[in-house]
């Protein structure tokens, strides 16, 4: 036999789930686009700090640390080719305002981008990178991914861009 307290607890759980489902279902019907589409990436807080527009296109800014990611179109998620992504970070070369720590790369046909640079070091309390899309065709997005550990040798991120 199930003790009365357990029965009451499972009733409460079931009732809460049902209640939650009832509040969620109509909302789910009202926003159908969320389920199947790629939502645009939103600019992160502090993402544009120490941005120097039009960083030169580079093949590498150093070696030992890889910043990579994907660029997709909002909605259908199609990979975007030839999109310029600007990247900067505090590394062993110096801080985020050090010009040698700023560079741009273009995405490949599969929407991927990759830049090798010097090791990223903690700056203002967190080891992090900055990435920007700021070329007008799509809405501007600034990202500020934080490394899980200052010992990490790479960081990955994704841009889902919405038309401007």
């Amino acid at each position: 036999m199930i003790p009365a307290t357990y029965a009451r607890r499972s009733f409460l759980v079931a009732a809460s789930v049902a209640g939650l489902a009832m509040t969620q279902a109509p909302l789910g019907l009202l926003v159908p686009a969320r389920a199947n589409g790629f939502a645009p990436t939103r600019t992160m807080r502090g993402g544009s700090n120490n941005y120097r527009p039009n960083a030169p296109l580079v093949s590498a800014l150093g070696s030992g640390f890889i910043v990579s990611g994907m660029v997709r179109q909002a909605g259908n998620g199609a990979p975007l080719k030839g999109v310029r992504i600007q990247i900067w970070a505090a590394t062993t070369l110096g801080g985020e305002r050090e010009p040698r720590n700023h560079g741009s790369v273009l995405t490949a046909a599969d929407g991927s981008f990759r830049l090798e640079m010097e090791q990223i070091v903690p700056n203002f309390g967190q080891p992090h990178a900055h990435l920007a899309y700021d070329d007008g065709r799509f809405q501007t997005v600034f990202l500020r991914p934080v490394l899980g550990s200052p010992k990490d040798r790479s960081v990955q991120t994704e841009f889902v861009l919405a038309p401007a």
Binding site: R45, G46, S48, N50, E96, R97, F124, G125, R144
Partner: peptide, 23 residues
């Protein structure tokens, strides 16, 4: 000193809009 190093990050902190939880 932090302001001289990065005015952007320091102003974000002072205005309480920095992404870092310790600011």
């Amino acid at each position: 000193g932090l302001f001289l190093t990065s005015p952007d990050d320091t102003l974000d902190a002072l205005l309480l809009v920095a992404p870092t939880p310790f600011s």
